[in-house]
């Protein structure tokens, strides 16, 4: 999932870095506003937890295994602001200690996994919960949908950044996007499944740990109102809409070839074409002209299947997890507030 240095062009890295810096600064600002003496240890623990949680393997095939990404999980437990900060620090430490991801692409990684994961995931979950309610079922279904949508939105954003990074003339981006989207719809399903099962497990064992809409997070019997998420409902709806739109755009991106001309002129106006690759690889590679292109023929079909199948699978997953929860779901709202 991590974007390495060298994948995106310097200008795109600078732009994503600036956006990510703004978003993280705002999160820190909100976190400071709500700062209490327990915010810092709690956020630190959440960051360490996401880091450690990414080491739990989820086997897929023999050599391949997936793992949690954690943005939605962090936002669900400590709220969007602390979640965003925690995810940012996870990504930073992964670079600074594992050299995982890149320094200049850190901005893009933070934007994809911390900002979209936590802010976007939280907004989508709130949006879903508005329809289903604040029950356990609402939280689980909301976080499943949020996990899937945030991964797809990140994929769409990556396609856009990648498109802006490389000279637009000679590359057929739609095929690259087809691969990206098909791949990420699988990652998204995995993330949705892991997040859903983990959250429903915590809800069954210790429901008071999960961050709700209108109640402060309480650990043990404390009731200090520190990590309470206070996204105004309109902002939350807007962000949720944006994330969902991006997720949908992910499936449309391979088809959007008519968009190219406008983008190209825009690019040349800003002067991004300067980053053209100079020099040519000599004759050795000429033969590869005839490499068969397995993806091309299946492109439309593959994206359609990935899109429709993925969407159906997420809804089935959400429904199944919702069903699997104990039927005697007491109204947690009254339980949480009625002290």
């Amino acid at each position: 999932m991590h974007i390495q240095d060298g994948v995106l062009s310097p200008v795109v890295c600078a732009a994503t870095g600036a956006i990510a810096l703004g978003a993280v600064s705002y999160s820190v600002h909100r976190l400071k506003q709500s700062v209490g003496d327990r915010t810092i240890p709690l956020t630190g623990m959440m960051a360490a937890l996401v880091f450690a949680g990414q080491m739990v393997n989820f086997p897929i095939g023999a050599p391949v295994s997936g793992h949690l990404l954690g943005g939605v999980l962090a936002a669900t437990v400590v709220g969007p602001w602390a979640g965003c900060v925690a995810m940012t620090l996870v990504l930073f430490v992964q670079w600074a200690m594992f050299s995982d991801g890149g320094l200049f692409s850190l901005g893009a990684n933070v934007l994809h996994m911390a900002v979209i994961g936590s802010w976007g995931g939280h907004a989508v979950r709130m949006f879903v919960q508005r329809f289903i309610g604040d029950s356990r079922k609402g939280i689980v279904i909301g976080s499943v949908v949020a996990a899937w949508a945030s991964v797809m939105a990140a994929a769409a954003l990556f396609c856009l950044e990648f498109r802006l990074s490389w000279p637009p003339s000679e590359i057929d981006f739609s095929k690259v996007f087809t691969l990206m989207v098909s791949f990420h719809s699988l990652i998204g399903l995995g993330e949705a499944l892991i997040t859903g099962v983990a959250i429903s497990f915590v809800l069954n064992q210790r429901p008071e740990l999960i961050c709700r809409t209108d109640n402060p997070v309480r650990l043990k019997n404390r009731t200090d109102r520190i990590v309470r998420p206070t996204v105004a409902s309109i902002t939350s709806t807007l962000v949720a809409g944006l994330v969902v739109a991006l997720a949908i755009a992910a499936f449309l991106s391979p088809f959007a070839s008519s968009f190219d001309d406008g983008l190209e002129t825009a690019l040349s106006q800003i002067g991004i074409t300067d980053f053209n690759l100079t020099g040519r690889v000599p004759g050795l590679l000429e033969d590869y002209d005839k490499v068969p292109v397995p993806v091309a023929a299946w492109q439309t079909l593959a994206v359609s299947i990935a899109g429709i199948g993925g969407t159906l699978a997420v809804f089935a997953l959400a429904w199944l997890l919702g069903r699997a929860l104990p039927a005697a779901t007491q109204n947690l709202n009254s339980e949480a507030t009625g002290e």
């Binding site: 949680g53 739990v56 983990a198 064992q205």
Partner: peptide
Amino acid sequence: AHLLGRLL
């Protein structure tokens, strides 16, 4: 996933 939840 339960391991993850328990760890949390």
